[in-house]
Design a binder for these strands. Structure first.
Lengths: 209, 209
DNA sequence: ACCTGAACACCGTTCAAGT
DNA sequence: ACCTGAACACCGTTCAAGT
């Protein structure tokens, strides 16, 4: 019930060699299993893929959510790096489009990431929330640049772009088994709505950052 | 394992009076419970809310999915009626916007409906699939009218509008607890992208109907 | 310190026993 | 015919017993 016996409980004294190995095996197994079958794959499945007992999972991660959060955290790091690189790209409009493409691609190829992008409980996990905010501020900078270049309407925010990124994926999701590229259609449609020329006043303000 | 003992198994001889009552109690309880807490509420909870044993649920519905499908089916019927009424509205652009609003409103106020609109397994249920197709053809007619009036770009289909309806909801979903009206922002943004003036060529064709 | 599997409270589903 | 709750195979999580 309480804070649980995480390997790094409070103070982080060094792990024993076998524990280091177990942790790495678990993370690697979780990456593969959750990517393919989503977060509803069982903890027992992850433990088996790692060649360990399922009790060991809970020695290293206080809950299944904590394990999922660790995986998703890595993926968010990758996306943050990609986004920050795009901040120095030549074409600000293309940079914005490439951020959206990278984020949606991640969801298409990783079932775990799109579970989280949609409402899964891991979204509220402190580790994940923090990373989402870091990503959001990088995207905010990306939008600012595009706005100054006059290639995006001036009433949209970085958070809008973040939400639209997952929204575009979700729009196409029901058809993706039959039409794996359909998300590109709804991305294009969304980008058309983001043009300054298309702008009509929005009825609801962006939520406070 | 097999087709299961649904109350209307194959031939539908009339139900006994107590069975009619039980079925009605179950449907009514399921409506309330699933609307509030989504489809992850347990069958035991529905049974308890109906004042019946949980075994009774499976006498009337072969699986939990069948029960959810019965509820969602009713909601789709309502949305179909609303949509068909809109076919005779004066303003074709407003009619399209009102369809989207009605569909999103349903998701905002009914957790079960938005579980299904997102990828839940019930989406593939034959009962639900059939109703979605009926709704889709009504929406197709709505789009045709708007297209002929020149108020919507000519490369979008009824299915596009259906997918966008659930997509707009999903876009706002993570923020809805804090900003319950935020979906109106993304609906407006999406409608801006649907204007003929905003249209740039789309990279991926609509899936075959 | 770390790993493990049996044990617990849940879930959807089945079915023998009651009316 | 219909209802019921115990029983089953799962799930996430805990923890005593092993190394």
């Amino acid at each position: 019930m309480l804070a649980a016996v995480n390997a790094t409980e409070g103070t982080d004294r060094p792990l024993r060699a076998d524990a280091v190995r177990s942790r790495a095996l678990l993370l690697s197994a979780a990456r593969a299993v959750f990517a393919e079958r989503g977060t509803e794959a069982s903890v027992a499945d992850v433990a088996q893929a790692a060649g360990l007992g399922k009790g060991t999972v809970f020695r290293h991660f206080a809950s299944k959510d904590d394990l999922v959060a660790a995986i998703v955290d890595e993926m968010l790091d990758d996306l943050i790096v990609t986004t920050e690189k795009l901040l120095t790209a030549n074409d600000p409009a293309a940079a914005l489009r490439e951020f959206m493409t990278a984020g949606i691609d991640l969801q298409v190829h990783n079932q775990a990431f799109c579970d989280v992008a949609a409402g899964a409980s891991v979204r509220r996990h402190p580790l994940v929330r923090g990373k989402i905010e870091r990503l959001e501020s990088a995207v905010e900078a990306l939008v600012d640049r595009a706005r100054r270049a006059g290639v995006v309407r001036d009433d949209v925010t970085g958070q809008d772009l973040m939400l639209l990124m997952t929204g575009v994926y979700q729009t196409a999701a029901p058809m993706l088994p039959e039409s794996p590229d359909l998300w590109r259609r709804y991305l294009a449609l969304t980008l058309d709505g983001l043009q300054p020329q298309a702008a009509r006043p929005l009825p609801t303000p962006a939520p406070r950052p």
